[in-house]
Design a protein around this nucleic acid. Structure first.
Length: 654
DNA sequence: GCCGTTTTCGGCCCGACTGTTTTCAGTCG
């Protein structure tokens, strides 16, 4: 767990314990909000506290984060210095820790769990099961047999509900469902929303929106949704909202048997369907895309303009009425498209990837920066691909043909180096032959340049896996860590720095080696890597495979701030891997990356000059700051290099 | 516990669904 995640988790637990104790709910939500703010914060809070040894400086820096006030900053500092938060320990002493597990049961919230605890002495899953068995759970207020049955069923699925799903398989489910909905007569439109649309690397559920003004079509859509293939449970079935759980297909390449649960069953994911009128589709899409923080900020912005915003549209605010405007027949000012709602709020259309509530609604998101954000059509080259020579399934020609069909001008063949024995890495002799084969393939296909490269292992000591003479013969070297991924941070930092400094290295491939939801990977000092990469003009890769997404969004944002170039590569092993490009692009967009900072968007000549080190592209930290990237700065720039990049979003206390 | 172009006190987003109720509390997103 990264250090920010540890702090975030502690504060989230405190929020839950406050709830269970029946304390002020706003105090609880303040802790929950702080937790979310920290979890997504791009800079390492431990570093901020350590680097600002004077307590007041660290505190001031922390308080620049939206949602962190004086007391929360003190708690963070205390946690960094001692590994504990005294107030959290006191709460933990008052709350049976088994109750926290109960909060994860779908349908059980703090009020109910608190009642179970105080009325019936339930303190954990076991005692809850006992009270269900002896029938005493029914004695709680508003606790009927149906509710008891539901809780009993949920208990069996405990742990499943909060398992997150990779963006790759989630997209497959969402897109097939959107297709199904659009095929229903009378359905005007359908789209997925939620964290999937924002391009988060994992999602907790899938939200799909259907637009229709026809009640019969609405009923048909709901029915089709609840009976589609893969549905294991129907959780809710209303007129405008249904929820189901759907079985997730397993992925052969990454399936190591661990994804099945103890009972041998597969993973499921919750899918929510909302049916709205076409006239309100934009407002609904906006609402269900989130994030929660973004929505709160948007609503607050609306209120400050004398308007009120909900999933039915943007309305004039009428504080005299308690009934919502759409129920009173008030016509919305804007509702049909997202664009018009943003416009009426005086904002440019903010791409979903930037709607994380980190200042995106505040005034400093410039239309120009949004326009410059990298997008899939900008990508003109794939610089990390494998063939049958190592662990790919395509030949050189097949690889190039598919790249050309996508409109790419360059494809780099980068098979594994000799130390990656499991991936059939090439020894020096095979690599020499492979280079010849690539040169021969060039003669067989027009309209695309095939580069002879290698994905060279960064060995545990930071040296590269071939000798310098051989490396010098390659058109491109992607240097990547594959083994020794449990090194301590200091060793990992030195290792990767050495690889960046090697004159042959052009791209640092999947820099941490993490696998999403599977493996933590290396935890080097990212700022040091990015500074070195900017200096040596090495591009930092965003590996687009949904299992890797390495660099992750927050790291990529930091890399841009420190003046690095990025590379977005599919790490192609099979034909379908080219389709992962969008996940890498979304990750880059979440980092605020302009197309001009991604080497894969370069025209042919510039790219090849860069590969030959005839031009330098990395702007470096000071230039990057002047360039105003990334598109959305956090509330304040998290560390020194970016401090000059942006004015503060808004100053808090003087 | 946080926050401020209504503010340093008094607010804090808003609606659907469920299951339990004859009008609503709790959960969820």
């Amino acid at each position: 767990m990264s250090s920010n995640a540890a702090i975030a988790r502690r504060l989230a637990l405190m929020a839950q314990m406050l709830d269970l104790l029946g304390e002020d709910s706003f105090r609880s939500s303040a802790h929950a909000r702080a937790s979310r703010a920290i979890e997504d914060w791009p800079a390492d809070l431990h570093a901020i506290v350590r680097e600002n040894a004077a307590g007041d400086t660290a505190k001031a820096r922390l308080m620049e984060i939206d949602g962190i006030g004086a007391k929360m900053a003190d708690k963070i500092i205390e946690f960094v210095r001692t590994g504990r938060i005294a107030e959290g320990d006191e709460l933990a002493a008052r709350v049976p820790q088994g109750l926290l597990e109960l909060l994860r049961v779908p349908g059980l919230g703090p009020k109910t769990v608190r009642a179970m605890w105080t009325e019936l002495g339930i303190v954990d899953v076991a005692s809850l099961k006992a009270k269900i068995a002896d029938g005493s759970l029914r004695s709680l207020p508003r606790m009927g047999q149906k509710a008891v049955d539901k809780i009993a069923a949920s208990l069996d699925l405990l742990g499943e509900a909060d398992r997150r799903l990779h963006i790759g398989p989630a997209s497959v489910i969402a897109e097939s469902l959107v297709g199904l909905m659009k095929s229903i007569p009378g359905v005007a439109d359908a789209a997925y929303a939620g964290s999937l649309r924002r391009g988060r690397e994992t999602v907790g559920d899938i939200d799909v929106l259907v637009a229709t003004g026809d009640p019969a079509a609405a009923r048909a859509a709901g029915e089709a949704f609840r009976t589609m293939p893969g549905v294991t449970t129907v959780l809710a079935a209303g007129e405008s909202k249904s929820s189901v759980r759907v079985a997730v297909a397993r992925d052969a390449r990454w399936d190591d048997g661990q994804s099945a649960d103890a009972a041998g069953g597969g993973q499921t994911v919750q899918v929510d369907l909302r049916i709205v009128h076409p006239d309100a589709f934009g407002a609904a899409l906006m609402y269900f895309t989130g994030s929660k923080e973004h929505n709160v900020a948007m609503r607050q912005r609306a209120l400050s303009m004398g308007l009120t915003l909900n999933e039915y549209g943007l309305f004039p605010e009428d504080s005299a009425s308690t009934e919502p405007p759409q129920s009173r027949g008030v016509r919305p000012i804007a509702a049909r498209t997202e664009q018009e709602v943003f416009a009426k709020l005086g904002l440019p259309w903010i791409p979903p990837e930037l709607r994380e509530g980190q200042g995106d609604v505040a005034s400093h998101v410039a239309p120009r920066q949004i326009a410059e954000l990298v997008d899939v059509p900008h990508i003109r080259a794939e610089l990390h691909a494998h063939t049958t020579a190592s662990d790919g399934v395509l030949s050189i020609i097949e690889l190039a043909t598919r790249a050309k069909a996508r409109g790419f001008h360059t494809i780099a063949v980068t098979d594994h180096s000799r130390s990656s024995t499991i991936a059939r890495g090439l020894d020096s002799g095979r690599l020499r032959e492979h280079i010849k084969a690539i040169h021969a393939a060039r003669q067989q296909i027009d309209g695309i340049t095939i580069l002879a490269g290698s994905e060279v292992d960064i060995l545990a000591d930071g040296s590269l896996d071939y000798d310098d003479d051989l490396l010098a013969q390659l058109d491109i070297v992607v240097a990547s860590p594959h083994a020794a991924l449990s090194q301590d941070p200091a060793t990992a930092t030195a290792r990767l720095l050495k690889a960046i400094q090697h004159p042959a290295t052009r791209i640092l491939g999947h820099p941490t080696g993490r696998l999403v939801l599977r493996r933590q990977g290396l935890e080097p000092a990212m700022d040091e890597l990015f500074a070195a990469a900017a200096e040596h003009d090495v591009a930092m890769e965003i590996n687009a495979h949904w299992m890797r997404l390495d660099l992750r969004d927050t790291h990529a944002r930091r890399a841009l701030e420190l003046g690095c170039m990025l590379a977005i590569n599919c790490d192609v092993h099979s034909p379908g891997d080219y389709d992962n490009l969008r996940f890498g692009v979304m990750t880059a967009r979440r980092a605020g990356a302009p197309a001009g900072r991604v080497v894969n968007t370069l025209d042919h000549d510039t790219l090849h000059k860069w590969l030959r080190r005839e031009v330098r592209l990395s702007p470096g930290a000071s230039e990057a700051a002047r360039g105003g990237t990334p598109a959305v700065a956090p509330k304040t720039a998290p560390a020194t290099a970016a401090k000059a990049a942006k004015p503060r979003v808004r100053s808090k206390k003087p």
